[in-house]
């Protein structure tokens, strides 16, 4: 059997849940493929991983992957993941969320998780819309773009998720797309391996809800859009600002060392224990 077939058999609930529910050509499946290859390269077993997801099309990923999985409530993948990490620090926590899930209803949890720096990985599939519920605009829908709730064009301005994560204090932040797949494999691998809070924002295609309303109604057209609008972060600084107007950077945006929350917490516990022991007559 080819290695990739072995991975599908090992890491996917291939005999129960496939074909999956996502639309033909939806980038969510491409992200899932990238994720299992990254996990395989890191040599992690199924039992060492907890995949927590929220609600939405992206959130359905936990149904298809054969790890310890948790399909949490909308916007709360990170809060459930936080609880598990504190109780079972030896496990590798990965949270998968949509843009609405992570930065709309779960936006506050997201920025505070980044600030706290617990060792886990947040994967945010940014398709610029609420896909599952019918194409309402999300916090990442571009200004002027059309949505079910913005028929005259979106009046609000979009969050840049990766930049938001940098500012909020995440240890590792990267952006990739479902067009640039070999690069995405590497970004996921680095993010999961990083000791600290990692964020990987993945620009993806929801041609069904976003594309159709914005002259990109099929996956091929959206994929071309991703290809043409991505600028490698390492090059962006050398390019004229006009030439990257309306585009986005891909690659690693931040990789920095910060004290890991669990280590800090252990230190506090040790100090408290010692104090208590000393106080005993």
């Amino acid at each position: 059997m080819e290695r990739i077939e072995q991975l599908r058999h090992t890491y996917l609930r291939h005999d129960k849940k496939f074909p999956h529910v996502w639309c033909p050509g939806c980038g969510n499946g491409i992200v899932l493929g990238s994720l299992i290859r990254a996990i395989d390269r890191l040599g992690l077993t199924q039992d060492e991983i907890v995949l927590a997801s929220g609600i939405g099309c992206a959130g359905r990923m936990s149904v298809y992957a054969d790890f310890n999985t948790l399909h949490a409530t909308h916007g709360r993948a990170l809060t459930f993941a936080t609880g598990i990490k504190l109780a079972r620090p030896e496990l590798t926590l990965i949270a998968v969320m949509g843009d609405g899930d992570a930065t709309g209803i779960g936006g506050n949890h997201f920025i505070h998780a980044a600030r706290r720096n617990l060792n886990m990985t947040a994967i945010i599939i940014n398709n610029q819309i609420y896909g599952m519920t019918g194409g309402q605009y999300s916090p990442t829908t571009p200004y002027g773009a059309h949505a079910a709730t913005a028929v005259f064009g979106n009046l609000e301005h979009a969050f840049s998720i990766a930049e938001l994560a940098v500012t909020a204090g995440a240890s590792f932040v990267a952006r990739g797309t479902v067009y640039h797949v070999p690069e995405l494999d590497r970004l996921l691998e680095k993010g999961i391996a990083k000791n600290g809070f990692s964020v990987i924002e993945i620009l993806s295609n929801c041609h069904t809800q976003f594309g159709r309303r914005n002259q990109m109604g099929d996956p091929v057209t959206m994929m071309r859009w991703l290809k043409e609008h991505a600028v490698p972060a390492v090059k962006a600084g050398d390019l004229a600002p006009e030439s990257i107007e309306g585009k986005f950077t891909i690659g690693v945006l931040v990789d920095r060392e910060k004290p890991d929350y669990l280590k800090e917490y252990e230190r506090v516990r040790a100090e408290a224990r010692q104090k208590a022991a000393e106080a005993k007559p």
């Binding site: 080819e2 990739i4 499946g29 395989d40 390269r41 040599g43 067009y179």
Partner: peptide, 27 residues
Amino acid sequence: EYHCPDFAITIKERGASGNGNGMGGER
């Protein structure tokens, strides 16, 4: 193979031992 969202394509190298998986090669 990498871009099929439905895991429906496998590329096999003729005569190879079956390790061509998409990027795990050097392990």
